[in-house]
Design a protein around this nucleic acid. Structure first.
Length: 940
RNA sequence: GCGGGCAUAACUCAGCGGUAGAGUGCGACCUUCACACGGUCGAAGUCACAGGUUCAAAUCCUGUUGCCCGCACCA
């Protein structure tokens, strides 16, 4: 039977088919064996349930799936633990928007009905990201999919909260926090997004209460005057020496505030050197207030309006109040001008709301003791962080860690398991709803309405997903997990917190290696954002999309077509110049492209043409197989021997390609182990394209078209085995096309699983290692010589402009016995690859005229084609060669005439230089003689 | 201000002590029996700058300049 392949590879047909087949076969399922020695596990950094696939997801799924598939092929009991997190704020925003379109709201529904609605949304739309990961070819154990809000994870959350509380590591306290008016919740310092914006610095005067003058202060938030409880100056500032301790009159209140001296808060050189202090609404002022025991006056309601303490401004929105305060100060004659000012503004990521520092009671995790353990784990080498540069960042953050504010004023999330006694106000913390107050025994209790920060549940992820707090077989098998792989931007959010909780609750680190990758950015190195209009949807690359579709997806909704296109062209100049959208490149191409970037590069500049190049590579795999299959036909027969021939049976070409395969396998393996996927893809691509296709395949053509059945049989097996091994090596990076092609190969050449049993699919076949193939540099040498001869002849053809249709009569001089044998053996191949009518091996003789001339390993390559060769072109070509040779020789001679080099350098280095010098000298002599003949011919 | 990183061919990046590499792009030729999503050949780099260490430096050290990323500050 002959399998015929279509002319080009079409991923849209192949990819979904194999994914379904792998799932059907259950290959992604891990087993809770209890045997940790053979286990390999990665817990997915859970994507946001509201999310849809972006380039960051594409990158992490590419990297993690490559590691996971490799481990699986190597025979490990492999678990990639999937799942998503419940993304408190983001989900409430999404569902609230949905409610708005339905004419209702969160408030109107009330907590219970709102939560029902969120769950309904979760069922309907919350699984998109996991579907998209399937499209990428990701191979987690879907049977174990977890959600941070499911029963198992929720139980872990309650357990963790209660234990930490019992240990005194969770407390409730009133501090200054970041309040989002729009999201109606507090957020932690880490989630604050700061950016420079244009603002205004407004100056006004505080008159002294005794009428002896005034102090001018400046502010970007004039409305906070209403909460001022002091004005600070620097103790060493001569301007204000006498003012310290005096009272100032508040413009809108019947109260006075003191002038205090504070060297921490005040920078004498900035503005007037006097600072108004609003302890309840500014982080620095808060600290100042504590240092000086100032009153803390809260001026804001939770909805962003000014409260009853704010005189005539009470009830006004914060931004209206700002304008009103300025106007009022102006009217009172206290305004002292305003100027433009760049300042950094803190916003909430989801709503872009300006955050307000406010004094509110919240729940906190006392982070220091946990952070110390996390620090120790890395210092002791229990967990390694790669690339190592990040260790310093890690240390810096963990040694300066702040307590973690874990309460959120949301409904969607894990409601804090704390109950307030309606009688005595005592707090009872418990795993399950307590019947009575732990202090007074009263039975009327109200549960804390706040929920926990989403990251609290994410921090438990590496073990809550494995069944904690129960002692499970899964934990026994897979904890600590092998690797945590994620973007470096998430080091603190996830990695540090997982480490803190893992070490604390499990007594052991949650992962042995932390691998951090960079950010995918646009072609120019800018972060992807809809505002910039440079967002690329990975699914468009996979399935194909028109330019209109691509451009529309790149920008925010509502951007005009022209605008969006302009932005796209700006951000992707080298692709946009074509004015085309994307062909269906396929998931393999996206994966392979992403894997060609060094993972540790801080930014990966998306080069769309390279995705196309990766697609072309998939097509190359396809076509090489298409070429080979007809010749492999005998291997399809029952009982056919598809084994790799022994070295003794192999031709020099066979030995060469097998040795190259061994080298490639070595590089792919070390690249995987060292988190250098770029090295894997480079090595595999080079082997397959530059060596297997460009050389070996071409060399087999005369064999397959010849009469030597024995040679055919050996070649066939070597070729089949090389293809088969290539697919195995490439499978972690291009799972679909390799599976498709592997299945087309004769069963007799397909490798078994690592344990020796039959592999029904490539995704579980043994991963190759260098030692599987006879690798030996010495055995490569004959082919290197042969390639040198062929390349030399081709170079002469190309540079002298010899037409394709003109066959040359190649002459080789000065070959030794082994080289002659080789040339005889590969006569047909040399003729085929150099378009020669014949190859004559001859003794040295008088230098011929009117020929192209080259020297390869001391052997002369002569291309006689009188009449077709332009002597001037040949002379120029030879002179170029000579110039290059002279330059090289000069360099080597400079070394050799340096006594220090000869006496001090390593013996091998000196020896190599000597050999190089002698080779170059003899080569130059021959080339110079040849050029002399050309000159003579030209003049005569 | 503190910390980290980068500077190599037109572009994106490898290399990190022993004669400068890849892919893209560019130029020429080729629709010869797998592939034009292809083949062959070619051009293209004083490896940011200045010192130092070394027999030998893109590679190690110091400094300078220019970019980038964190963290802090910004009344």
């Amino acid at each position: 039977m002959t399998i015929e392949l279509s002319k080009g590879y079409d991923p849209t047909d192949v990819e979904p088919r194999w994914y379904a087949e792998w799932i059907r076969a259950g290959h992604f399922n891990a087993e809770d064996t209890g045997d940790a020695s053979n286990a390999y596990c990665i817990a997915i950094p859970p994507p946001n349930v509201t999310g849809s696939l972006h380039m960051g997801h594409a990158l992490f799924s590419t990297i993690q799936d490559a590691l996971i598939r490799t481990a699986r092929m190597r025979g490990f009991n492999t678990l990639w633990q999937p799942g998503v997190d419940h993304a408190g704020i983001a989900t409430e925003v999404v569902v609230s928007r949905l409610l708005a379109t339905e004419g209702t709201s969160r408030k109107e529904l009330g907590r219970e009905r709102f939560l029902q609605r969120v769950w309904q949304w979760r069922e309907q739309s919350g699984g998109r990201i996991t579907e998209q990961l399937r499209t990428m070819g990701a191979s987690p154990d879907w049977k174990r999919e977890r959600f941070t809000m499911d029963e198992q994870c929720s139980r872990a959350v309650r357990e963790a909260f209660v234990r930490l509380h019992e240990e005194g590591l969770i407390y409730r306290g009133e501090r200054l926090v970041n309040w989002s008016v729009k999201a109606q919740t507090v957020i932690s310092d880490l989630e604050v997004e700061r950016a420079e914006e244009d603002g205004e610095l407004f100056s006004f005067a505080y008159p002294f209460a005794d009428g002896s003058g005034e102090i001018v202060v400046a502010t970007t938030r004039p409305e906070t005057i209403l909460g001022d409880t002091a004005v600070a100056v620097h103790p060493d500032d001569p301007r204000y020496k006498d003012a310290i301790g005096k009272q100032l009159k508040c413009p809108f209140h019947d109260r006075t505030i003191p002038v205090i001296a504070d060297s921490v808060l005040v920078d004498m050189a900035f503005g007037t050197g006097a600072v108004k202090v609003t302890p309840a609404h500014d982080f620095n002022d808060y600290e100042t207030g504590r240092r000086h025991s100032l009153p803390f006056i809260n001026i804001l309601e939770l909805d962003g309006t000014l409260n009853a303490q704010c005189a005539q401004f009470a009830g006004k929105d914060r931004f209206d109040a700002r304008r009103a305060v300025k106007k009022a100060l102006d009217a009172m004659g206290l305004a002292r001008g305003a100027k433009q000012h760049r300042l950094s503004i803190a916003r909430e990521a989801r709503t872009a709301d300006v955050l307000e520092p406010m004094l509110l009671p919240q729940w906190y995790v006392h982070a220091k003791p946990l952070a110390d353990k996390a620090l120790a784990a890395v210092r002791e080498g229990k967990t390694t962080i790669e690339p190592v540069e990040w260790v310093k960042t890690w240390e810096h953050w963990l040694t300066n860690i702040q307590d973690w504010c874990i309460s959120r004023q949301l409904w969607w999330g894990h409601q804090i398991p704390a109950w307030y006694c309606d009688a005595c106000k005592e707090i009872t913390v418990a795993r399950e709803e307590p019947g009575r107050c732990s202090k007074c025994g009263h039975t009327s209790l109200t549960q804390e309405s706040d929920v926990l920060d989403t990251w609290f549940s994410s921090a438990l992820w590496p073990f809550s997903t494995l069944g904690w707090p129960d002692k499970t077989k899964a934990l026994e098998t897979f904890y600590p997990t092998s690797v945590m792989e994620t973007g470096h931007d998430i080091l603190f959010f996830w990695v540090a917190r997982m480490m803190m909780f893992g070490v604390h609750f499990m007594g052991d680190v949650p992962f042995k290696r932390v691998l951090l990758h960079g950010m995918v950015q646009d072609e120019r190195g800018d972060k992807m954002s809809k505002v910039k209009g440079n967002v690329i949807d990975p699914l468009h690359l996979i399935h194909g999309a028109s330019l209109d579709t691509v451009v529309e997806a790149a920008s925010q909704k509502g951007t005009s077509k022209e605008d969006a296109l302009k932005k796209f062209k700006l951000c992707y100049p080298s692709y946009a110049e074509r004015g085309e959208g994307f062909a269906a490149f396929g998931a393999d191409a996206v994966r392979f492209y992403l894997a060609t970037n060094p993972p540790q590069a801080k930014s990966i500049k998306l080069q769309l043409r390279q995705v196309e190049r990766a697609r072309n590579f998939a097509n190359k795999l396809w076509n090489a197989t298409r070429f080979a299959l007809p010749y492999l036909e005998p291997l399809f027969a029952d009982g056919a021997d598809g084994s790799m021939p022994s070295v003794a049976e192999m031709s020099p070409a066979d030995r060469w390609i097998v040795s190259r395969l061994s080298a490639a396998a070595g590089e792919v393996n070390s690249g995987l182990d060292e988190f250098r996927l770029d090295e894997c893809t480079t090595a595999a691509r080079r082997f397959f394209w530059d060596e297997l296709c460009d050389w070996y395949l071409e060399l087999t053509k005369p064999v397959f078209n010849g009469e030597d059945e024995r040679a055919k049989s050996i070649t066939r097996r070597v070729l089949a085995r090389c293809l088969e091994a290539s697919f195995r090596l490439l499978h972690p990076f291009m799972p679909f096309v390799t599976e498709e092609l592997w299945q087309k190969l004769p069963a007799s050449v397909r490798s078994p699983r690592a344990n020796g049993t039959e592999a029904p699919h490539l995704c579980v076949a043994k991963f190759p290692v260098a030692g599987d193939f006879a690798g030996d540099l010495e055995s490569e040498r004959p082919l290197v010589f042969l390639q040198g001869v062929i390349s030399a002849a081709r170079n002469i053809r190309g540079e002298l402009g010899i037409k394709q249709k003109d066959a040359i009569a190649l002459r080789i001089r000065g070959a030794n016995e082994a080289q002659r044998t080789l040339l005889a053996q590969y006569d047909a191949q040399v003729r085929w690859l150099t378009i020669a009518s014949g190859v004559t091996v001859e003794e040295p003789g008088p230098r011929p005229k009117g020929v192209g001339y080259a020297v390869v390993e001391g052997v002369e390559v002569i291309v006689p084609l009188a009449g077709l060769i332009d002597p001037k072109a040949e002379q120029a070509r030879l002179e170029k060669e000579i110039a290059k040779g002279k330059k090289d020789l000069e360099k080597v001679n400079k070394q050799l005439t340096n006594e220090n080099f000869v006496s001090r350098a390593a013996a091998e280095a000196v020896q190599a230089a000597r050999e190089e010098a002698s080779t170059l000298t003899s080569r130059l002599a021959k080339l110079e003689a040849a050029v002399a003949v050309v000159r003579e011919a030209e003049s005569g």
